[in-house]
Amino acid sequence: MAGPLQKFYLVEQLRHERERLQQENAHLWREVEGRFSTQKLLGNSLPMQRLVRVIDQIRDSSVDVLITGENGTGKELVAKAIHFNSPRARQPFVAINCAAIPETLIESELFGISKGTATGVDARMGKFEQANKGTLFLDEIGDLGMRAQAKVLRVLQERAVEPVGERMTIPLDIRILAATNKNLEAEIKAGRFRDDLYYRLKVVHVHTPALREIPADIPLLANYFLDQYGKRMDKPAKKLSAGAMRRLMEYSWPGNIRQLENEMKRLVVMVRGTTINEDALEEGIRCPPQINGGPEDLQGRSLPQAVAELEQRMIRETLAACRFNQVQTAKRLGLSRQGLIKKIKRHNIQV
């Protein structure tokens, strides 16, 4: 009897252990999905509400998505929110930064490589195959070379990948999320990006706004980062004075949300008291460089001349900030696209 009884207890022990692991796994998945919920995309501004609404609209689908926005605006966080709020949430999420991989290695990284393709080379699974059944996030897709672009396009068309040095294709069930800080339409005109790949990726387009475009969200974000890093570092709760908050909202934030997060982290460490005043802010934020074009620069000019110069400078600077995307430039300047085009012609601005 000892043998069967011992086997029974062993089976029961294994069953309980399996149930425990299943419960733990389910708990961890709930934690991950909660961490990347759209509720974590903080912001009450219209651009952020629009962004969250698009993610919610596509949550039941697996369509490919193109994410655009400046560096530091949270494009990877948006990609993870899309993945973890989709039917593929419990399948792999694989990310690759296309700008960080040398052009000589990018194809083997993306598509894999078979053993013996070169001396001493072992077989390696590429990112496309690793992401099978799940999502592949192609970050900085605008930096991909033309040869690799052609091969990525073929994979997207055929939903199958052929590793380097291999003749057989591997079928894929995969979703593609691509992100870039470049104006891909301008890159297409310059001959640096394939238009067919652009339209293949851009089934749905979402844009992550620059922080200067959503100043009303700065208090919410700043207080969130102060609270998070205060808890993480076991520091007393801190708050920003009215003057310090005003400085944050007036600053242009070239590094966007990433820069704001790092500044709040620094303040949690450096400020001893519980109130953060203006003088505690980084000098570049507290005293930003003055932009040329103040009253002293307009002396000796008539009012029409001064207005024309200011208008021309604003259009040039906004075009550059928007990477010469005329729709975005017009929106930021409060103009119609046709109105912007007329002013560009009037001021003879080269685009």
Rank of each mutant, 00 (worst) to 15 (best):
T275H: 01
V269H: 00
Q259V: 04
T68D: 00
A81C: 15
P215R: 12
E109C: 09
T180A: 01
V63K: 08
I176R: 01
Q326N: 14
Q328T: 03
N277Y: 07
K235T: 03
T104K: 06
G230Y: 04
T274Q: 14
I174C: 06
L177Q: 07
I188A: 08
K75V: 02
G284T: 14
L298Y: 06
L41M: 10
N25F: 08
A237R: 12
M146R: 14
P288N: 10
S62H: 13
N262P: 06
H16M: 11
E70I: 10
L46W: 00
G69V: 07
F84M: 06
T73Y: 05
V268P: 03
P102F: 11
E296C: 02
F225S: 01
E19L: 15
G294L: 08
N277T: 07
Q328R: 12
Y251K: 10
L105Q: 06
M245D: 03
F36Y: 15
G293D: 11
T73N: 10
P219T: 03
G134Q: 06
I96Q: 02
F36P: 06
F193V: 09
E109N: 01
T208I: 02
G300R: 02
D139C: 05
K133G: 01
L28G: 02
F225Y: 14
R301P: 00
L14N: 12
G243P: 01
L28Q: 12
V204D: 11
H83V: 01
E107I: 08
G191F: 09
I174Y: 08
Q57R: 15
K342A: 10
F324E: 11
A95Q: 14
L105N: 08
E187K: 14
L144D: 05
V152G: 09
A321L: 13
P209D: 08
T119H: 13
N183R: 02
V327Y: 11
S45R: 10
G145H: 12
G293N: 06
K239F: 00
R246M: 11
K345V: 03
R316A: 09
L177H: 03
P289E: 11
R192P: 04
G339Y: 02
P171F: 07
G165E: 10
N348V: 10
G294K: 13
H27S: 14
E103S: 15
R192K: 15
Q290H: 12
A148Q: 03
K343V: 04
A89L: 06
A308V: 05
E282H: 13
R266W: 00
E140Y: 08
V65M: 11
A179W: 05
P87T: 05
I141F: 05
G339P: 08
D173R: 12
K238Y: 03
E309I: 14
T180G: 04
S62C: 10
N183P: 03
I141G: 04
R200D: 07
K238C: 01
T73H: 08
G116Y: 09
T73C: 11
E140T: 02
E76Q: 09
R53P: 00
G294I: 03
G191D: 06
Q312C: 13
L177A: 07
N183Q: 06
E33Q: 15
M48D: 00
T180H: 04
L335V: 05
L156M: 15
R88G: 09
